[in-house]
Simulated scan of single mutants.
Amino acid sequence: MAFEYTPPKYAQLIAEMERRIESGEYPPGSPLPSEHQLMSEFGMARPTVVKALGVLRDNGWIITQQGKGRFVRGRPALAAGQHPRTGRELLERREIPSVTRLVSVGLVKAPRRIAAYLGQDAGASVLLRKTVVDQDGQPSEIVAVWLPPQVAEGTALAASKELSQGVRRQVESVAGVGLDHIVEHLTARNPDKEERELLGVGASAALLDLYAVACDATGKAWVVLQTVLPGDRHELEDAYPIR
């Protein structure tokens, strides 16, 4: 059964504050409304307001001056939307037929690592959706989406055709929850037989294996996105503000 998803209140407040800063309604250097004022205007409890302000501070939109209050810093030079982290990009990515090949989709026994991420017993049934992404005429990465069967049942995630919408929208719609954060794990290893065939690499090739575990606000994992990258075809780059 699909549910209509409404973003949590703190996320709604974050979006509105970012909009006001970008529009110039709250110009750089100006004091931010107090917690009490925001609670009154938006009808939110203090913990919700404090959480939203903490995210805005951590993302570089506002600054806190001890004893003086919170002030607008402006749109951060490295805004999250400009430089999406790998896991977030995978969560939002559509499967474009011209560059994405669907390799397989169906129920499999969960490997130990995947079962641990999803809080399931090893060997439990999970849905695996696997695609290969081509770039410049050669296979560039293998993307695997792992999730509990009840989350994928009856959705495009379980269908044998490319996704026209990202995994995030599908999961949030079915689960009726908002995905709050991603935990990433990066390892390096040699390819297995299937990966050698799909990527066209040798047995001694170095692969980067990144797992992005998407969780709700309680920390419950709903989906694991795995990307397998040939080390000689990729360079991982990250950028973040220094505070």
Rank of each mutant, 00 (worst) to 15 (best):
1 M>N: 08
3 F>N: 06
6 T>S: 14
7 P>Y: 02
8 P>A: 04
9 K>P: 11
10 Y>K: 07
11 A>R: 15
11 A>V: 10
11 A>F: 08
14 I>Q: 15
15 A>F: 05
16 E>H: 06
18 E>C: 15
18 E>P: 05
20 R>E: 13
21 I>Y: 00
23 S>N: 11
24 G>W: 01
25 E>M: 10
25 E>Y: 13
29 G>C: 07
29 G>H: 05
32 L>Y: 04
33 P>I: 05
33 P>G: 07
36 H>F: 12
39 M>I: 09
40 S>A: 14
41 E>D: 14
42 F>Y: 13
43 G>S: 12
45 A>Q: 08
46 R>C: 03
48 T>V: 05
49 V>L: 00
50 V>C: 04
50 V>G: 10
52 A>E: 10
52 A>L: 11
53 L>W: 00
57 R>F: 07
57 R>T: 10
58 D>G: 08
59 N>M: 11
60 G>E: 00
60 G>T: 00
61 W>P: 00
64 T>C: 01
67 G>H: 04
70 R>H: 01
71 F>H: 03
74 G>Q: 00
75 R>L: 15
76 P>E: 03
79 A>Y: 01
81 G>H: 14
83 H>F: 15
83 H>N: 14
89 E>Q: 07
92 E>S: 06
93 R>W: 01
94 R>D: 07
94 R>A: 15
94 R>Y: 05
95 E>G: 03
97 P>Y: 06
98 S>D: 12
107 L>R: 03
107 L>K: 07
109 K>A: 11
109 K>M: 02
111 P>R: 00
113 R>F: 10
113 R>L: 10
116 A>L: 13
116 A>T: 14
116 A>M: 13
120 Q>A: 08
120 Q>D: 14
125 S>C: 09
126 V>I: 12
126 V>D: 08
130 K>I: 08
132 V>H: 05
132 V>T: 12
132 V>M: 05
132 V>E: 04
132 V>W: 04
135 Q>V: 13
137 G>Y: 09
137 G>K: 06
141 E>W: 12
141 E>Q: 13
144 A>H: 11
146 W>F: 09
146 W>A: 00
152 A>W: 01
154 G>A: 02
155 T>G: 10
155 T>R: 03
160 S>H: 06
160 S>C: 03
164 S>C: 08
164 S>H: 05
164 S>D: 12
165 Q>A: 13
168 R>K: 10
173 S>I: 13
174 V>L: 13
174 V>Y: 05
178 G>E: 08
179 L>A: 00
180 D>P: 03
186 L>W: 14
188 A>M: 15
188 A>C: 08
188 A>R: 15
190 N>S: 15
194 E>I: 07
195 E>H: 02
200 G>Y: 02
203 A>K: 07
207 L>R: 01
207 L>H: 01
214 A>L: 13
216 D>N: 10
216 D>T: 04
216 D>H: 08
217 A>C: 04
217 A>N: 07
220 K>P: 02
223 V>T: 10
227 T>P: 01
228 V>C: 01
231 G>Y: 12
235 E>L: 14
238 D>I: 15
238 D>C: 08
240 Y>S: 14
241 P>Y: 07
242 I>G: 11
